[in-house]
Design a protein around this nucleic acid. Sequence first.
DNA 1: CATGAATGAGACTTCATTCAT
DNA 2: TATGAATGAAGTCTCATTCAT
Lengths: 220, 220, 220, 220
Amino acid sequence: MNAAPTDKRRLILDAAVRVFARQGFHTCRVSDIADEAGVAYGLVYHYFSSKEQILDTLFLERWEVMLEAIAQADASPRSPEEKLGAIASFIVDSYRHDPDLMKVIVVEVTRAANTFGLTHVDRIREAYSRIASIVADGQRDGLFRAEITPAFAAQAFYGCVEQVLTGWIFDSEPVGTAELERAKWMIVDTICHGLSSARAPEATGPGPGAAAGSASSKSA
Amino acid sequence: MNAAPTDKRRLILDAAVRVFARQGFHTCRVSDIADEAGVAYGLVYHYFSSKEQILDTLFLERWEVMLEAIAQADASPRSPEEKLGAIASFIVDSYRHDPDLMKVIVVEVTRAANTFGLTHVDRIREAYSRIASIVADGQRDGLFRAEITPAFAAQAFYGCVEQVLTGWIFDSEPVGTAELERAKWMIVDTICHGLSSARAPEATGPGPGAAAGSASSKSA
Amino acid sequence: MNAAPTDKRRLILDAAVRVFARQGFHTCRVSDIADEAGVAYGLVYHYFSSKEQILDTLFLERWEVMLEAIAQADASPRSPEEKLGAIASFIVDSYRHDPDLMKVIVVEVTRAANTFGLTHVDRIREAYSRIASIVADGQRDGLFRAEITPAFAAQAFYGCVEQVLTGWIFDSEPVGTAELERAKWMIVDTICHGLSSARAPEATGPGPGAAAGSASSKSA
Amino acid sequence: MNAAPTDKRRLILDAAVRVFARQGFHTCRVSDIADEAGVAYGLVYHYFSSKEQILDTLFLERWEVMLEAIAQADASPRSPEEKLGAIASFIVDSYRHDPDLMKVIVVEVTRAANTFGLTHVDRIREAYSRIASIVADGQRDGLFRAEITPAFAAQAFYGCVEQVLTGWIFDSEPVGTAELERAKWMIVDTICHGLSSARAPEATGPGPGAAAGSASSKSA
DNA sequence: CATGAATGAGACTTCATTCAT
DNA sequence: TATGAATGAAGTCTCATTCAT
């Protein structure tokens, strides 16, 4: 009925996130997960058929949430730029909320072209597809220019986001809130308005001053 | 002595690229590499001290070439946008010339935050750093706006490039030349001018139809 | 209390017969038995102390019945040949009635010289012993010749029977009644009169056309 | 080329025979085999793909020899009874020469209707088939009576042989030569002439005192 | 009686690495 | 250089058995 006082399955899943993040999927042992969860070895196999299935479960759980977030952003009565901002914001907040989980997804799944990435390629591409659809709407409304294909734009946007996450993931120290917030704005601003200074300044949105300006640049 | 008719070391390295690309580093066995190279099992250990060292060698070899290409682009008397174009062009041409090698680097190293990525993080960041330097120059000259930090801009640019490669890597079919060329232009145009239509059109550069003709060919 | 409408213990035993016959003792899991019986996993251990004990129980239950059948055959006022016929008939009818159970006994116990066969060797040999006693009586009465030792004769007779069962067990299709009946006669006729044609024909008994009508039905 | 001073593969195979005979296939571990052979654990998997494959190899090696022995017996210019004698003799001598191997074959393969027996059922039945063919020839020549089908006769004969072996296998003490020789004669005499005394005495053959002298010795 | 989650020892198999030739 | 047999540590997964409810 309710979430039992000890939902061992959840315990294992959460432990796996920490262990995968710390040691990597290939480097960790199932016993590491069991130990981290504080349960017996065999219980892992009571709930999951293999180590792989744990990662699959983790990825799918989270990715469905993300697809839903993208759908909601798209459904809102906002400009395309604001929609992209909502998505970037969601992903960055996901990282803030559970950096280990995002690390696992980015490191072990999204680029794992021979293993998990291949398994989940359709689900992964669904996200790009939905982002591309937002861009296409922007083009139709004349807000986005037509030279850049929506599919490419989606790749550029998502690639930019993931690279930022990757930078944080490689950092030895945790990332501050200010930097997280600034990243949201910079991602959208860069993708929508580019690096070049030869553009109409009024489109900028909240502007760089809005986010806590002090933050580092250690990630470079 | 000389570059022998059969440089077994090179044979092994090239075979490893194919095997790593096909099966992934963790999924392949050393014997797969030896078989692919057509050499005896033990010979692999004559030339390399471990399976890891083969990947390290592969990565470092290629990454040095890339750092050099970035340096050369930076050293040339071009605009920052053209310099970015040269870099994008170099990477895309690298993919065209040896997609397996680029797949291995992107899939097995640059995001492998617990294994090879960590080992080579300094070398990897050196690339971002050099790209950031180009952006900083552009800002100093007033060509790039100052709101986006150079470090972030480098991430955005490189993330965009790698995402495009990743897309190709996941594709089951090989990518055509036209698409490769179009990607070069779109990467630079998106990063420099953004998706928004609210910008000065004259900054566009060669335009979507023309491949960035000047750019690299050093990768071959 | 009473022999309940659902005697779970019996349910488990019967399910075990089917599972052992289908998958073999070593290949099946205790959970397979529980599933087949439609009872909870733990209940198996409420009634039996181990997986082995289930097979022991199955074997002993059946083997006692068989020893009793042999004893009865021996006690009846029949000729030795008819007594052997009654035994063959009983075993074949046992197979007809519950081929799975006989399969389990033949496959998992009587030849399992390192496991169950060893555990039950005395009980198994008791059967040979009783058969040998019938042969010895035949020799004493001049009906059987003395060159073949009773112990050997018992082995020959029982080996013949078991080999016939084994043949059926390996068959993919179920065996017809006619073949079962014919086998009863052929077993006894071969063991008593041999393959050679150089013998007195009048000793043949009911003959190949008639099923050994008198024989048992206790097995049902 | 030649049989190397240490043919490790053979060493492993021979060790497996001893270990399978002593502990049974399911009860022994691969490490037991490696230890018994005095080789490293991994070498077992260098030569064999699994524990099962070791048993398969053992069985097939020996069974082909047996099929060949049956074929030779059949090809010789002997009476059917003598041919059966040659076969019984060959099998008994096989047991004398390597009781462990015969134990493994009888216990782990021949009756293992859910595992190895099933795998090799065709090969096993080939033996029965060849024996049946000898019987059929005997019937055609009027030496064997027609009431017993050749297929059944083959089962009776082989079942008798295997039961005798099984008896020895279960014995705690090794079997003496005299008993082995006597068994050869009793098997054939029982199957060919039956237990009954009501038969023509001249068909008896060499008699219980003489070992079937001509038969086999190929097994050594 | 009945349930099924929880336990953990154990076995197979893999494979990087070594080494004698 | 070149070979591939030999080594053995390590990890995944299985499953009989226990136990709290």
